[in-house]
Computed example of a mutant assay.
Amino acid sequence: MSTPIVPPFTAETATEKVRIAQDLWNTRDPERVALAYTVDSRWRNRDEFLSGRDEIVRFLTRKWQRERDYRLVKQLWAWTDDRIAVRFEYESRDADGQWWRSHGNELWQFAPDGLMAVRDASINDYRIEPSERRL
């Protein structure tokens, strides 16, 4: 499977790639999201290291079971021919109803077919009150 936006990126195509990723993650569909990554994609997400689509699906399934009402916004930070850096923010609530805001940065590297081969994510979380929600 390939994607219509392939390296090398321009400002316009990198921005569109980020928007597509944001929209895809907001579906909270692990199987669908995993298709945007190479079959052997490598991830670091916080302190977890993943390899391949099967691990990505398992990780995202756990994530969205724990992070309820998840809503994500991504913004392009920088890009090169086959890499994109983004900043992101998302909000979710846990099983006890506590709302959380999470901020972070991701570094992405793409294969020639436009699928993401490497994703490196640094994320910080903090509690928020329902009245503090922005997303």
Rank of each mutant, 00 (worst) to 15 (best):
Y126G: 15
R101C: 14
W100G: 06
A78P: 00
Y90M: 01
E89S: 10
G114P: 11
S122D: 08
Y126D: 13
T61G: 06
V33K: 15
L107S: 07
R44N: 14
W100E: 07
Q98L: 01
V57Q: 05
A34C: 13
W43N: 07
D47H: 04
Y37H: 12
R68S: 08
A111H: 11
D81I: 00
L35N: 08
K74G: 07
R42G: 04
D69T: 00
A117V: 00
K74H: 13
R127T: 14
E106I: 09
R32E: 11
E89L: 07
Q98M: 02
H103L: 14
D47E: 03
V39C: 10
Y37G: 12
R83T: 12
W79K: 00
S131Q: 05
N105S: 13
D113S: 05
W77V: 08
S41V: 14
M116G: 14
D54A: 07
T80F: 11
N45D: 12
W99C: 10
W79R: 03
R87N: 12
R133F: 03
E91S: 04
W79D: 07
R134N: 10
A121F: 10
F59G: 06
A117T: 00
S122L: 11
R101T: 04
R62D: 07
S102A: 04
P30D: 00
V39L: 15
E132P: 00
R134V: 13
W100I: 05
W43A: 05
P112I: 06
D94M: 04
R68F: 01
R46Q: 09
F59W: 10
F110K: 05
E31R: 01
I123R: 05
S92F: 13
R58S: 06
G114H: 01
E132K: 02
N124Y: 03
Y70K: 08
N124S: 09
R62W: 01
M116S: 14
L60G: 04
R66M: 10
E129G: 08
R68E: 06
D94P: 15
W108S: 06
M116N: 11
E106D: 13
R58D: 08
W64A: 02
Q98Y: 02
Y126P: 09
D69C: 12
R46V: 08
A85P: 15
R87G: 15
D81Y: 13
A121I: 04
E48A: 06
D40A: 04
G104V: 08
S41W: 02
P112K: 11
P112F: 10
D120G: 01
A121Q: 08
E67W: 09
P30W: 00
R93C: 08
L50A: 10
R32H: 03
D125I: 02
R83V: 08
D120A: 05
I56E: 14
S131Y: 07
I84F: 11
E48N: 04
A36S: 15
E89T: 09
S41N: 03
K74L: 14
R58L: 01
A36Y: 11
R101S: 10
I123E: 15
V86R: 02
D82M: 03
L60K: 02
R58F: 00
Q65R: 12
D96Y: 02
D69E: 15
F49Y: 13
T38H: 03
W77P: 07
L35R: 14
N105V: 12
D113E: 12
Q75L: 05
A111F: 03
R46I: 06
E31Y: 01
F49K: 07
R32A: 15
